[in-house]
Design a protein around this nucleic acid. Structure first.
Lengths: 318, 318
DNA sequence: CTGAAAGCGCTAACAA
DNA sequence: TTGTTAGCGCTTTCAG
């Protein structure tokens, strides 16, 4: 089914058919109706790849994340997909398995087939990113780079309100179970958490961003003489709660724990996790929007503390 | 950067450059090396869309799932993406939001841009699927249709071993918290569970496949006089455990609960969920494989019971 | 408002 | 082994 078949069947020239689909206002209403009817009947659909060849616009977007199966990303992917579809864009999704080399290769591989790519929490160096930016437009999520559109989530503010929440409950000595050494996010969290007045912060880490790491960190937390904990993310927080439980320390009775991210498992966990919700869906939507409109803006999305069951006043203060 | 630039820069004709990339054995080793070097230097990459126009093969695959954010799917998506990439295919991912109309529209929208699409747990009628099959090759996951390649996971066997596990622990009266009314999976589970000898099965449902539905089902389960439960999926199981806890019924002390799927939240839950693991990653990989090789086979993957902490002998039997 | 013709980047016969 | 040529399905000037 090509444009030619439709042209023939409706007795007009191919260019008229083409216009019917890509510039309908340029074609007589009557002709248009006829062409549309014929196209419908033949089940014709413009071939986007062929179209891309002449227009230079593919109407495709690439989305690259570190790990599709990490509960942090699916809501972002879902939202990006849905926004893209609303605007008649298709979404390629790829997974780097946390490998910067793969990241670069993927961007390059996508470059000819997309109008732009969304890179989430990239591990590539600024220099590498700058070079890639010459080949294909992109939007960065969770990473700042001048001259490139970015969508940031305000973890710093989130971390601050998490610690403030603990402070308000009466906690005076709080542990920060930090993230991986090189992580931008982890740095932000550490700095913001340390700023909160009236709270003494004990940093435990660096740690991998996993449940296992949380379990392992439990020993150090138990011995740190703290009554509250802010974890690098929900996975770590969940692991920590489990590790603490193994040592007979219960949450929130003995120790309060706050996570970051607000992933599904945290909502289902018991006790339900108090956490800093990251607006991942908004970030996905916004990234698509920025890409399609090709605006080079740097946006910061607000985070929000969600108080659930893993935090309470410290023992003896009730 | 087109093939023409490379041709010019390396002093050969475009077709030689083309061959260097798509049929290297047809070109003199020396020339090939030179062309490759020039291409590398210019950062040339073949334009896949243009290539698709002549060859008819896009090297793209479409993957359509009901809900990207449902923890069941990400491992499948991840595995599919990774297999696809290994074979130099790119993956479009889309989400139907459980709407059959969207499903159909997506397949059609993808059709010109992919070599085939993978449809997971489609809601479309057999007839609609048959019609779509004429327009684009596809592989069905979790749905059987004659004449179409399918990847099935053996839920029936899984449900059976789940109930057998309960029976072996000493449970004699077991509830099945079933799934949505129209679901093929739910039917399979019900039938298989009922077959296990020595166990009286009480069906509670239909229910939505959600945590909320699980919470709601807790009342009925508590009053059903059962000591064991098989839930339609892990989400329902987790909700059920929570709902039971609210009523002072604890798992596994008072009631044993088995889920199905083995999603991440179930592994992180407390008690860790005993469940029937669905080989979703294998399914994703296999679906890609079948599509690329275009074999019309019907495969059934084995499921496996994973015993964790939510099951135990019934009270008074220890 | 519609038709004619050129060309997007590439591959695939066919010749040389 | 390499060059020539036609054409994939579509859009886009330019005429009419």
């Amino acid at each position: 089914m090509t444009i030619r078949d439709v042209a023939r069947a409706s007795g007009v020239h191919v260019s008229t058919v083409s216009r019917t689909f890509s510039a309908p206002h340029l074609v007589n209403a009557e002709t248009r109706a006829r062409v549309l009817a014929v196209a419908e009947e033949l089940g014709y659909r413009p071939n986007r790849a062929a179209r891309a060849l002449t227009t230079g616009r593919t109407h495709n977007i690439g989305l690259i994340v570190a790990d599709i199966a990490n509960p942090f990303f699916p809501p972002l992917i879902k939202a990006a997909q849905s926004s893209a579809r609303e605007r008649d864009y298709h979404l390629f999704v790829a997974d780097t398995d946390e490998d910067p080399a793969v990241e670069e290769e993927l961007v390059l591989a996508f470059s000819k087939q997309v109008d732009g790519v969304i890179l989430c929490s990239p591990r590539l160096s600024n220099k590498a990113l700058d070079k890639l930016a010459e080949r294909v437009p992109f939007v960065l999520v969770n990473r700042r780079l001048r001259g490139v559109a970015t969508v940031l989530m305000d973890v710093a503010q989130g971390a601050r309100s998490a610690v403030e929440h603990l402070a308000a409950l009466g906690h005076r000595r709080v542990a920060l179970v930090s993230g991986p050494a090189g992580s931008w996010t982890s740095g932000e969290i550490k700095q913001a958490a340390a700023e909160v007045p009236g709270v003494e912060l004990v940093v435990i880490g660096p740690n991998a961003p996993t449940e296992q790491a949380g379990i392992r960190a439990a020993a150090a937390v138990a011995e740190a003489g703290v009554t509250g904990v802010l974890a690098y993310n929900d996975l770590v927080a969940i692991g920590l709660i489990e590790g603490l439980a193994e040592r007979g320390v219960s949450v929130p009775e003995d120790v309060s724990v706050v996570g970051i991210d607000d992933i599904v498992p945290g909502r289902l966990n018991r006790p339900k996790l108090t956490t800093v919700a990251m607006p991942t869906a908004d970030a996905g939507r916004l990234a698509v929007e920025l890409l399609i409109q090709s605006v080079t803006a740097s946006t910061t999305l607000e985070t929000k503390l969600v108080v659930r069951e893993s935090t309470a006043p410290p023992k003896g203060l009730t």
